[in-house]
Design a protein around this nucleic acid. Sequence first.
DNA 1: GCTATTGTTGCACTGAGTGCATTTTAATTG
DNA 2: CAATTAAAATGCACTCAGTGCAACAATAGC
Lengths: 201, 201
Amino acid sequence: MRQASPKPEGLRERNRREKYEHITNVSIRLFLENGYDATTLAEIAHSSGISRRHLFNYFDSKDEILFSHLREYYEMIAESIARGSPDEPTLEVVRKAILSNLTRFDAERTLAIAKIMRNNAALQSKNRANEINLEKAIMKGLSALWPSKMSHDRLLFASILSSGAIRFATYIWLRDGNEIKLADCVAEAFDRMKFEIQCTE
Amino acid sequence: MRQASPKPEGLRERNRREKYEHITNVSIRLFLENGYDATTLAEIAHSSGISRRHLFNYFDSKDEILFSHLREYYEMIAESIARGSPDEPTLEVVRKAILSNLTRFDAERTLAIAKIMRNNAALQSKNRANEINLEKAIMKGLSALWPSKMSHDRLLFASILSSGAIRFATYIWLRDGNEIKLADCVAEAFDRMKFEIQCTE
DNA sequence: GCTATTGTTGCACTGAGTGCATTTTAATTG
DNA sequence: CAATTAAAATGCACTCAGTGCAACAATAGC
């Protein structure tokens, strides 16, 4: 996907952004109505008012329509981690970064996507594959915070643990419905990590 | 993929198994020679001496050719976990199960697949997506070992942590070449988990 | 041997994704 | 404002993965 230019947003950039959002919304609606597999790119293009070919100037692939909005979110997390305090432990920095960015988390869209993915193993796989990007974002943030003090391997391991905790938190949140706050799930997941390891002692 | 029948293996079963191995070997050779994307299923079928259509009676998709052999391995891990001692901590049970099955781990094939995946982001994503199966296998084993004593969530979390540790171990092992033993990498990864958490205290 | 089952093939089709040439639209400059 | 340049948008033709179906070949069991 193309990056937004850092300059003041011109008409082109704004149009692009709006159309990007529009296509995503249309697609999610169609996926919810008819299912992911049964919805073709031709239909999405037609319903969005653009040509099928031009879809690929916005999204690299069909599943990117569902996941690409996360890139921006992941980027914010990376920056938030990089602004953490280097005296705290790695996992604590990540936890705080996640919690402080939770307001930017698009819960409604996530719920819709979760519904689309239900009973679609292939999509769930692609969702999992997309976790690579979260992990890389965490790694990027941690590397920026400790440019050389900590070994690459330690930071990588922390990234892996963190993304696992986040996935667990999201899973619980989606499963237990709206009764539970996502923040609590995240906090609990990171706590659970300590607990589970301590049991090993 | 079809399951091997538990009965004594007839001529059909044996042929199937041999052909399955044959196709896999031919495919890996072609992937190494010409790259994954540049190798079509038509070529694989032709080089394997079967029709393109018939490939799909062995593998559900192109990438399954690379990953399906892991199912058997994962199944053994699940059984090994289920045979663990219920008095030990979850992560310890998993660790021992992994280590005791390492002789069945096909290092050579894994190295070849890693080489094929290098510089192919899409394949790396699919590899990551395939980790779902490892996690499910671990979960299955743990659930069998503690049918009701431990909560589903605790076991799930342990599965997530374990699969993360295993991925880290594999990553280090692939990166540092043959100087390092995979068993050491696995042991170190599980140790590292304790260490990383203790830093949080 | 005969029969049911399973392996195997070919064919035609759908849909995602790409390369390319072309047209349309917006930004830039004189 | 008009001319130029760059980017957005389209249409077309193509490749390839994956599927449904009908037909045929091989094998297991009787």
